[in-house]
Structure formats: structure tokens, C-alpha cells
């Protein structure tokens, strides 16, 4: 890594467009909302920025919001972990596939995500509902087992009638739904890092007698860490703010903080409070990211 002074022209060429774009078309709009988080509602449409902290106090002082935030955090964490567990082998297979197959496999992973989220979620519901395909399949197996048992003389319906699994409208469904929504955000960065893994390291490790598992933990895992970290960031943070998935797949207590925020901007018509909640979420994430860079900063001396 070099300091920016070494090649100022290149530095500024790289820095200017992205920074300007983000500053004008993102930070400026956001600043309006940030200002709102210190505002008070004066009428049904008007708000006045008074520098009040009441919105933040309301959010932090009411246990129910903290409870919902906490719940959002662990649901998102579980979903992220699931994503990682599922995405890693997929990214691995795609990255190690013959060149000819790579784009096909990559497309195959991404394709489902080009279908509209709403449609996809409804399709997911039709697969997992009480009278959905998973339960039909299970019932078929169940009945088959029953008739085999009856055939070998154990009497009719030993296993009893089939009870459909209740897979929707609970926390499990929300986590599964989030995994189904955010999977590519994990697969793609993982793919990009695994793909550049120098295979001679793996060969060396295996040649020197390490098992596949050992090779994975001591060679592959550390070397793909940047991809894993960016995947976790890209999945965990959007999960935190999601509202459509808990809305459609969750049960009666599936509300996540995203739903509460969404309501403040819509039905509750309380933009200042919604802004304060959003920014609380952002402050927390930034805190976490800062901690990570502190932690990573200590290690980066080795890595780079």
C-alpha cells in the first residue's frame, strides 16, 4: 500500500467520481432524514427541526423497541450464519469448476434472484405451506411407509395419520426466507475470493499430508477471510433492516425493527421517529464496523 501523495493524479482520479456521487445523491438526501431525527411533528404534514432528542429518548427509553432490535439482531445473525454455511460449498464448487462450467453455474445460482422478491416469496409460501409440496411429499412417503408396514403384517396405519409440518409463520420461516433472499450477497464475494485462491497452496498442504479438513481450516478458511467478512457484512446488515420477509413469512411475533421503521414512515406518519430509529440502527452498525476495523487493523500487518 502506498500513500496518496505518491501518485496524486491517480489518487484523485479514482477518488473523485465515487465520492462525489455518494455525497450528492446519497449523503445529501440522507442528511435531510438525519435532520428529521432531531425534529418534532408540528402538524399532519409539517415537521420542525428543533434539535430535540425526544425521538431518540423515546426509542431507547421504551423497552419494547430495544426488545425488537435485539430480536432483529439474533434473527439476522442466524440467517447470516445459515447463508455462510450454505453459500461456502456452493461458491467453492463454482470456483473450482472447469472454466467452461463456471459462468453456467454462476448464472444458475443468480437466476432465481432475478425473479421479483414478492413473487419469489409467494412461491416459497406455496412450497412450504401446510398443503404445500414439501408436505405433500412427506405425506406420500408417510403413506408409503404405512402401507409397507401393513404389508409385512404389522396391521393398518401403524404410524397413524400424517400430521403436516407447520413450516410457515414462525421464526424458522423468517430465517429461511432471509437466507433465500440474501444468498447471492454471500455467494458472490465468496466466489470472488475463492476463485483467486492459489491452488498450489492447497496442493502443497495436501501433499504434505494434511487432511482435506485440516487443509480447509488452516489454508482455505484464513485465505478466504476477506470474502467471508464482506459476505457477512452484505448479508447481516440488510437483514437487520428487512421488513417484507418477516411481514409475509413471520408469525404473530415476527416483527423486526425494519417493520417498525417502515410503519413510522407510512401508517404511523411519524417520520422523525422513523428517522431516529433508522439512525440508531446505523450508529450501532457503524460501531460494530469500527470495532471490526480496529480488530482487523491489528492483524492486517500480517496479511498485507
Amino acid at each position: 500500500m502506498e500513500t496518496w501523495k505518491q501518485s496524486k493524479a491517480v489518487f484523485w482520479t479514482l477518488a473523485t467520481p465515487g465520492t462525489l456521487w455518494l455525497a450528492i445523491f446519497f449523503v445529501a438526501p440522507l442528511a435531510i432524514i438525519w435532520g428529521l431525527s432531531f425534529a418534532e411533528k408540528t402538524s399532519i404534514v409539517d415537521t420542525e427541526i428543533t434539535g430535540t432528542l425526544s425521538n431518540y429518548i423515546r426509542a431507547l427509553g421504551t423497552p419494547v423497541y430495544l426488545k425488537i432490535i435485539w430480536k432483529s439482531i439474533w434473527i439476522s445473525a442466524l440467517a447470516t450464519l445459515m447463508c455462510l454455511i450454505i453459500a461456502f460449498p456452493i461458491a467453492f464448487v463454482v470456483a473450482f469448476a472447469p472454466d467452461k462450467w463456471k459462468p453456467i453455474l454462476l448464472m444458475a445460482v443468480i437466476l432465481p434472484f432475478w425473479i421479483n422478491l414478492l413473487i419469489r416469496t409467494y412461491a416459497l409460501i406455496s412450497v412450504f405451506r401446510t398443503r404445500g409440496f414439501v408436505n405433500f411429499g412427506l405425506e406420500w412417503l408417510w403413506d408409503g411407509a404405512n402401507s409397507i408396514l401393513a404389508f409385512i403384517g404389522l396391521g393398518p396405519a401403524v404410524l397413524g395419520a400424517f400430521e403436516p409440518l407447520q413450516m410457515l409463520y414462525n421464526n424458522f420461516a423468517v430465517i429461511a426466507g432471509l437466507v433465500y433472499v440474501y444468498m447471492p450477497f454471500m455467494v458472490l464475494p465468496l466466489y470472488a475470493t475463492i476463485e483467486r485462491l492459489d491452488k498450489s497452496f492447497l496442493e502443497a498442504s495436501l501433499d504434505l499430508g494434511a487432511s482435506q479438513a485440516r487443509t480447509f481450516w488452516s489454508v482455505v478458511f484464513p485465505l478466504t477471510m476477506p470474502g467471508i467478512v464482506s459476505g457477512i457484512i452484505l448479508v447481516f446488515i440488510p437483514c437487520l433492516g428487512s421488513f417484507l420477509t418477516p411481514d409475509l413469512l413471520g408469525g404473530t411475533n415476527a416483527t423486526m425493527i425494519g417493520n417498525v421503521i417502515e410503519r413510522q414512515f407510512k401508517a404511523a406518519n411519524d417520520w422523525p421517529f422513523g428517522a431516529a430509529l433508522s439512525f440508531l440502527l446505523m450508529y450501532a452498525t457503524f460501531g460494530a464496523l469500527a470495532l471490526r476495523s480496529l480488530f482487523a487493523g491489528r492483524k492486517s500487518g500480517m496479511e498485507v
Binding site: T3, L22, P29, P238, S278
Partner: peptide, 28 residues
């Protein structure tokens, strides 16, 4: 490629769009 003053803050700045809840950004 570069080390420059305020880099961690700049990284945070770049992470903004990922961190913000969609609805908040929509309204913004």
C-alpha cells in the same frame, strides 16, 4: 491501493448505503 488520512472514516462513508434501512433511503 492507498493509505490516506481519514481512511477508516471514508470506508464508513462508503458503507452507508449498505447500512441504511431501505425504507429510510426511499424516503430520503
Amino acid at each position: 491501493r492507498y493509505r490516506f488520512p481519514g481512511k477508516p472514516a471514508y470506508e464508513g462513508f462508503m458503507a452507508l448505503p449498505i447500512v441504511i434501512p431501505e425504507i429510510c433511503m426511499g424516503v430520503a
